[in-house]
Nucleic acid binder design. Structure first.
Lengths: 333, 333
DNA sequence: CTGAAAGCGCTTACAG
DNA sequence: CTGAAAGCGCTTACAG
């Protein structure tokens, strides 16, 4: 394996000069630079980034920790992250926690051992412990999609309260009075905020909160299915699903019960499903700018790596209501 | 930052003994082991994996290079990879090439600098150059989904010829005679093999090959849309889409032209769309065992890292035909 | 603009 | 079962 010393020898310079050329650090005479570059090329020199990182305390590595890599929302976020990172010369570890705190803690521990420069974290729980562990070791952190308690940390997320409010107001405007909420885990800020938007819209329409219509579960197809089944006896005329996978499960449960949308029950959803999956978009949704979210979060993280003293910022991105034919006025009683 | 020396000092042993305890390498007296473990815990010692990797020439890192992280097929493969890798103590870099050879070469170069132990590669082109570059530096390689020319390398993939044959035979059995092929890039083995299965099924039914019904493009929604538009003038009664995204584009083009499936045109597709996206599965598809594919490929890679002299193997996984209501007999002329 | 020396934090290769 | 010495391939911190 050829090393920086071999290159230096062939170019007739000291190793440190080769290092300066390769990293564009410090001044090198153009003539010298060229000799070094030629020597490196001739020897097919492959820099050992491990040695570089070990010595310089910089790995040029980020990690993206998400809760479900199977969800197109996160896949799209991942593309935004990947594009910005690779453009800046960073590689990205992807970690999938399945909304599991233990898995998350294990990943964070592994990332600390690997000395990643920064982490983009979609937290599986609202505890700030893992974020704190990272910050204590000087790892940059940006929290995605959800908020975390007890630590000062950059956050980039969509506007859950407003998105939920818009969706549910659309239903109340259509005349619905029995609107159910199918939310994610009760402990997550996104669930709470989407529930808050739901409640605000009901109040604005002068409707009472009915606890039998409000369900918390998980952001999965299975949970959406289970919540919808439990709900059917309470005869809602419309449902608000707090994410796309919950909606998918709920729709399956409706179909199994012989119910159609919007004739029997109107459906609105937080999070769109991208193009390839739905050739005919049906669901009324609030679309989050997922790619932009990944991009903005990564840019913020890189910024923070350059300037660690930057004041913490909570960036809330606007969401967009897309009305489609899954909603209609309720059937007359 | 506490180091292995600090731990050694506190435990009253030499650094190498700490190393042996932490890596479970070599014999250590249980008593000594315990003292070391306690010291490490008390000091909140975080091993520096960079130093470890640098010295031992082992990074415990893999990379998964795919062509489109947005496609649920690859997402599911990724889960299989991630699960096996993390269980074995490996972290995974995810790289997305967008079927772009240049991007792929850049990623491979970066992975070489990072000294990953192994790479799972879904090649963007049939050239074996990048595989060869990895092998030359003693990086383990398993090729996914597609074959590559001119190098001996492990391969794990679905049975494209048979899957295509089954789908198209299903159409010929229904009585279709004008069956179109919407394939991916002409240069990829998957495209060629799916075209070969298509041709074999037509021959088996005594049908001629009609070049005006055979189109090659890309594995994208846009390409499927464009190919379908070009095709409409030729009045096929059925189409075989070589992947799910091509099908999605084709269906949109059909809808824009006022055509329905299966009344106007029957549709069969290589690759399923997973649960959440289609509450009512409609398309007749061949489903690949994507999770198993990722799992099997990663297991094979880890095996090869342990035994580099293993003979090369081409593992072809069976696929499964799922008949659904996107297919019917052609309308009488 | 360039270089000699030291050292990052581990593991390898011996030795006992 | 345990340890002293050397070294992995770079960059840091000086020096000139």
């Amino acid at each position: 394996m050829t090393t920086i010393r071999d290159v230096a020898k062939r170019a007739g310079v000291a190793p440190i000069t080769v290092s300066r050329v390769l990293n564009r650090s410090g001044y090198v005479r153009p003539e010298t630079r060229q000799r070094v570059e030629q020597a490196a090329a001739e020897l097919h020199y492959v820099p050992n980034m491990l040695a570089h990182s070990f010595r310089s305390h910089r790995t040029n590595t980020l990690a993206l920790v998400v809760t479900d890599i199977t969800n197109p929302f996160w896949t799209t976020v991942a593309r935004g992250v990947e594009d910005v990172a690779s453009m800046a010369g960073f590689s990205v570890f992807f970690c999938n926690t399945d909304e599991n705190e233990t898995k998350q803690a294990q990943y964070i521990a592994a990332l600390l051992r690997r000395r990643v420069d920064g982490v983009l974290l979609a937290p599986a729980a609202s505890s700030g412990a893992d974020v704190h562990a990272l910050q204590r070791q000087n790892v940059g952190v940006v929290v995605l999609d959800r908020r975390v308690e007890g630590v000062a940390v950059d956050t980039v997320r969509g506007d859950s309260v407003d998105g939920a409010f818009q969706l549910v107001r659309h239903l109340t405007d259509l005349g619905h009075r029995r609107i159910a909420l199918l939310a994610g885990p009760a402990g997550l800020s996104v669930s709470q905020e989407r529930a808050a938007g739901y409640e605000r819209a009901l109040r604005a329409a002068g409707l009472p909160l009915d606890p039998s219509l409000m369900h918390f579960g998980a952001f999965t197809v299975a949970s959406g299915h289970a919540m919808m089944r439990a709900l059917l006896a309470h005869r809602p005329t419309a449902i608000f699903a707090a994410n796309n996978f919950i909606a998918a499960g709920a729709l399956t449960a409706m179909r199994e019960a012989g119910l159609h949308t919007p004739e029997d029950i109107s459906v609105v959803v937080f999070d769109d499903l991208p193009d390839p999956y739905v050739t005919t978009p049906v669901l009324t949704v609030v679309a989050q700018p997922a790619y932009t979210l990944g991009k903005a979060a990564t840019e913020r993280l890189l910024e923070r790596l350059r300037q660690p003293e930057l004041p913490v910022r909570d960036l809330v991105l606007p969401v967009q209501l897309l009305v489609r034919r899954s909603t209609a006025a309720p059937a007359p009683q």
